[in-house]
Every structure is written in structure tokens, then in C-alpha cells.
């Protein structure tokens, strides 16, 4: 049981949903990233996804890609993040998970990465470019370490395959709301809900929705059909623009508006 499992157990008991903001590590620097994460924790967000910058992201849209470029240009290093992270996670109520490319994990060594990430305070990882076929070794290592390996299911995933992915997932299922890359979209991505309904018949894992969710209206439109909501680009965009303390308060206020929509479902 990772802390992610504990979180959803409690939310389910209370009939509540999770709000999970995403923030890019090191954009504009790690200290600022930590401050933002602390704010998310203070206002009561349930989990935070920490994006690890990568030079060649395929699944990410322009907003998150640009944040990766800024962080890498500013000298982001994974080892340095992992060294600093315990000071942050020791004081957090919510769990944090990393979202990152398999290229980085492979380069670090699967076992070395998982044990270092767990020791630093990550409860799990989302690895969008490591599909089921390629995940066996990483999946086994994550299980050994009680480290959640959160896998993705998309609108293009056939149901039979979705069942297999669910069987290999721990923590929660990350359901990608749209066929496409990350980024804000004007319409609530509600077409995924039929597929989520079907998937519920085969898994008890929490199912959370991400990609394209950027407002309280989206949350209300989707409603209580999912166990949690992931908001990425809408936050990263605000971080990119933030210059003054007021701007950073604005990020908190935005997160609070989403959180309250989630809590009121």
C-alpha cells in the first residue's frame, strides 16, 4: 500500500473526489516549485503530480513543453531535485508522484530510480511513454518497493486492453480524456465517461481524468463519475506568467477554485 492507495481509500469512505494539480519541477527553479507545492498542500489539494522536465516530450502540448525547456535551460538536474525533496515532503500532508519519460528512468537505472525516488518522498510515478508491453520490469520493481505505477488508458484503448492495463496498475488509473496531447480545451471532455463506465465493471481501482481539464465548469460537467481530476497546463501556464507574489497567490486562488468545485461534487 502506497500513500496513494491510502488517499483514495479515505476519499472513497467519505464519498469525495481528488484534485491533483500538476507542476513542472524546476520551472522557473526548484525553490519556487516547492513553494507552489506547499501552497497546494496548504489549501487541501489531495495529491500533486510533479513533472520531470524532458528534452523530447511526445505526449505534451506546447504549454508543458515550454515549461520543460525553461527548467532545463535553468539547469534542472534530477539528482539535485531528489536531494532537496525530503525537506519538502517531510512537511506535506498530500502525497506527490512524479510524471516523467521512460527515457530518464531507463538512463538512471530502473531499480536505482525507484528506490531513490521513494526515499526522496515520491509515492509513485506516471510514465506516459511506457505502455503495457514495455512496463513489465518497471512494474515488478515498483511493486517490490510499494511504489505506485500509475498507468494511462486513453479513448483509443480497446476495452480488453484497458482491462489488462488496469490489472497492471497500482495507485489509480490515469484516464486520458481526449485523443491528443496535454493542453487546455474549451469543452469538457465528457465523451470519455462512457468508456470509464465500462471499465468500472472490471476494476475497483480509482479512475482519475486528465488532459484538457482547466476549469471548475469542466469539473462540474464531468461530475462524480470519476475519482479524481488532474489539471496541468492551466497551472503551468499561470506559473510561466507569475512574476510577483500576487501572481503566485493567483495560482493558489485558481487551484482553490478547482478544489472547491471538486469538493462540492
Amino acid at each position: 500500500m502506497s500513500t496513494v492507495d491510502d488517499l483514495f481509500k479515505k476519499l472513497r469512505a467519505d464519498d469525495k473526489r481528488a484534485f491533483m494539480p500538476f507542476v513542472t519541477a524546476g520551472d522557473p527553479d526548484v525553490a519556487t516549485t516547492f513553494k507552489i507545492i506547499e501552497q497546494f498542500d496548504t489549501i487541501g489539494c489531495h495529491l500533486c503530480e510533479v513533472g520531470i522536465p524532458y528534452s523530447d516530450p511526445i505526449a505534451d502540448g506546447p504549454t508543458i513543453q515550454a515549461s520543460f525547456v525553461r527548467a532545463l535551460d535553468a539547469g534542472f538536474k534530477l539528482d539535485s531535485l531528489l536531494d532537496q525533496l525530503p525537506a519538502l515532503t517531510a512537511n506535506l500532508t498530500m502525497p506527490i508522484v512524479s510524471m516523467m519519460s521512460y527515457s530518464i528512468i531507463f538512463r538512471k537505472g530502473l531499480e536505482q530510480f525507484v528506490s531513490a525516488a521513494k526515499a526522496a518522498g515520491f509515492a509513485g510515478a506516471i510514465v506516459p511513454d511506457c505502455p503495457l508491453e514495455s512496463a513489465a520490469e518497471l512494474s515488478a520493481i515498483c511493486r517490490d518497493h510499494d511504489f505506485s505505477l500509475i498507468q494511462l488508458i486513453t479513448p483509443t484503448t480497446p476495452l480488453e486492453r484497458a482491462r489488462k492495463i488496469a490489472a497492471n496498475t497500482t495507485g489509480f488509473i490515469y484516464f486520458v480524456s481526449v485523443t491528443g496531447i496535454t493542453g487546455e480545451r474549451s469543452d469538457a471532455p465528457s465523451q470519455a465517461l462512457d468508456q470509464i463506465g465500462q471499465l468500472r465493471e472490471y476494476t475497483d481501482l480509482p479512475i482519475c481524468l486528465g488532459f484538457g481539464i482547466s476549469s471548475a465548469q469542466h469539473i462540474q460537467a464531468i461530475g462524480s463519475a470519476v475519482d479524481g481530476f488532474i489539471v496541468g497546463s492551466a497551472i503551468v501556464k499561470r506559473v510561466a506568467k507569475a512574476k510577483s507574489p500576487e501572481d503566485f497567490d493567483g495560482i493558489s486562488k485558481f487551484a482553490e477554485s478547482i478544489l472547491s468545485a471538486v469538493n462540492n461534487l
Binding site: 511513454d129 514495455s134 483509443t156
Partner: peptide, 18 residues
């Protein structure tokens, strides 16, 4: 599985797998 010895394979987002 698309392997040339240990090389090759498939490391793409789930959206593209189908």
C-alpha cells in the same frame, strides 16, 4: 515484440499503441 536482440521495442504514449 519488435526487439532486435535487446534493442527496439515500443515506448510511446498509450494513445498511439492501438
Amino acid at each position: 515484440t519488435g526487439r532486435f536482440g535487446k534493442f527496439g521495442g515500443c515506448y510511446v504514449p498509450e494513445t498511439l499503441v492501438d
